[in-house]
Write a protein that binds this DNA or RNA. Structure first.
Lengths: 341, 341
DNA sequence: CTGTTAGCGCGTTCAG
DNA sequence: CTGAACGCGCTAACAG
């Protein structure tokens, strides 16, 4: 490995001068600059950022801690983060938590040891502990996608409550009253908020007791399948289903198909999260779409501003609107006949 | 920031003793070990891996350089890499190259500066330069997904040629003779190999001149759409289409739909790469599926073995088979009438 | 515009 | 089993 000393010797200058040329910091005459550059090129010198970071206390690396990169929503988030970060000269390290508290803590430890300049966290659970922990180590953190009460940190997310409200409103306006909610894990704020939105819309329609219609599960297809099966095999099956995320919706679609029910003819279906257009041949699901890429970029910018110390004193909370995209799966208005009871 | 010095002072030992306890290296009596551990816990000490890495010349970080994390194939790869890496105590940094040579080089530079212990590279172009460059800096590298001639590095990929061959064979056996190939970018080995497989199958069927049927494009939906449009609007349109990857296939589906053609009734369609089951409601496309997760894990293990210095002397090349999954899009055998000419 | 000195936090080396 | 000295490669602070 060649160091600035080697370059310095070859160029006939002091190491610090090499450092200044490389980093474009401080003055350097055209002549010495030239000499240093040639020497560096000749030796194939590359800076050791470990040493640099140790000295400057900056790594120019941020971390993205999310639940599962396999979900296209988070893939888009990852892409948004990387684009914004790399434009600003930062690299991105990412880790999956699988909604698992222990895994999240393990990852956070590692990241702090690595001295990342900042962390974008999609919290696996709703307590402020993890945020506190990160901040105790003087690392800026931005909460992404989910809500954490009492956390003194910037956050960026979508308005899950309103998105859910709009979806359920749509179903109500189409004449549905028996609307099942296939929910996410209790405790994940996105799951909670979507349930709240559902409840608000239902209550406004005079449907106050929805316990029969609500289920909790996980944000994956298997869970969606299971919950849908349970819903449609109940004594009063739903005429419409609201799935709390994309995977749950897909699982529900499969369950309905397996039971010989068609969407939207037999059961209407709406869901949270759109799939990227590149992945879908014939968009079919009515959804509340979240601007994942934009969200990620905004969050990254917030984080970077904290890192560079030019953020405001108070906490920023950015809540982006979801977009209601009506497609075939929600179906047309239904007549009274469909509404058993 | 608390350092081993602080811990040492509190525990009444020398810094080096703290180091030994933390890393479980060298001897330490039960008593001092205990004292050090309590002191560390009390101060909330976390190791500074920057300093450690500078000293040990190991970062326990590997990098995954791929073309686009947005493609579910690569998402699965990313997940495979991270699972394998984190199990072995390594973190993963990733970057997208967007099939762009300049971007790739920029990323590689950064990674080498960061002293990553190894690099998993999905090469954006087919020359061995990048590999050479990485190796010149004494960094182990494993070539992932694509083929590079003359590269002296381990590699893991799927058998694109054979996968393509099987898909086209299937179409031929169903009676198709007019089979269009919607290809990837010239130079990407996966694109080249899939074309070779197509050619081989066609030649075996006595179809030696296929220039009319072959197009080159990009691995994205827009390109698939464009190529499909061109193919079906030609004077002798195809009765079947082979798409060189998942995005191209989806683009082709859209084009066919827009032209009022149905799959497989009017045109049969097969493609490379399956979509993860979690993303698809009703699997429809006949595909050659690549074991992305397994591939990623194997590649990571190869890389780690190089890093830890217990790999064999000679280069390893792992070529995994693709799986032919026949679904509806390839259609039934066609009768002579469909085969114009 | 350039150089000297010192030290970031840690682990290797060698000595007890 | 424990410690002292040193240096990994770099840059901040100060001097000239």
């Amino acid at each position: 490995m060649t160091t600035i000393h080697d370059v310095a010797k070859l160029a006939g200058v002091a190491p610090i001068t090499v450092s200044r040329v490389i980093n474009n910091s401080g003055y350097a005459s055209k002549a010495t600059r030239k000499r240093v550059e040639t020497a560096a090129a000749e030796l194939g010198y590359v800076q050791n950022r470990l040493a640099r970071s140790l000295r400057t206390k900056r790594t120019n690396a941020i971390a993205l801690v999310l639940t599962d990169i396999t979900n296209p929503f988070f893939t888009t988030v990852a892409r948004g983060v990387e684009d914004a970060a790399s434009e600003a000269g930062y690299t991105v390290t990412y880790c999956n938590t699988d909604e698992n508290e222990v895994k999240q803590q393990k990852n956070l430890d590692l990241l702090i040891q690595q001295q990342v300049d900042g962390i974008l966290l999609v919290p696996a659970y709703s307590s402020a502990d993890a945020i506190q922990y990160i901040q105790n180590h003087n690392t800026p953190v931005v909460i992404l996608d989910r809500r954490i009460l009492d956390a003194k940190a910037d956050s960026v997310r979508c308005d899950s409550e309103k998105g859910a409200y709009e979806l359920v409103r749509l179903l109500l306006e189409l004449g549905h009253r028996h609307i099942a909610m296939l929910g996410g894990p209790k405790g994940a704020s996105t799951a909670d908020d979507r349930l709240s939105g559902y409840r608000r819309a239902m209550a406004e329609a005079g449907l106050h007791d929805v316990t029969h219609w609500v289920q909790f599960g996980s944000f994956n297809q298997a869970s969606g399948y299971k919950m849908a099966m349970k819903a449609i095999s109940s004594t009063t099956p739903p005429t419409a289903i609201f799935a709390a995320n994309n995977f749950i919706a897909i699982g529900a679609m499969k369950a309905l198909q397996n039971c010989g029910l068609s969407v939207p003819e037999d059961v209407a279906l709406v869901g949270f999260d759109d799939l990227p257009p590149a992945l879908v041949t014939f968009p079919f699901l009515t959804v509340a779409s979240q601007p994942a890429y934009e969200m990620a970029q905004k969050a990254t910018h917030l984080l970077l501003s904290r890192i560079e110390g030019n953020g405001p004193d108070d906490i920023r909370e950015i809540i982006l609107p979801t977009e209601l995209i009506v497609r075939r799966s929600s179906g047309p208005a239904i007549n009274g006949l469909n509404q058993a009871k």
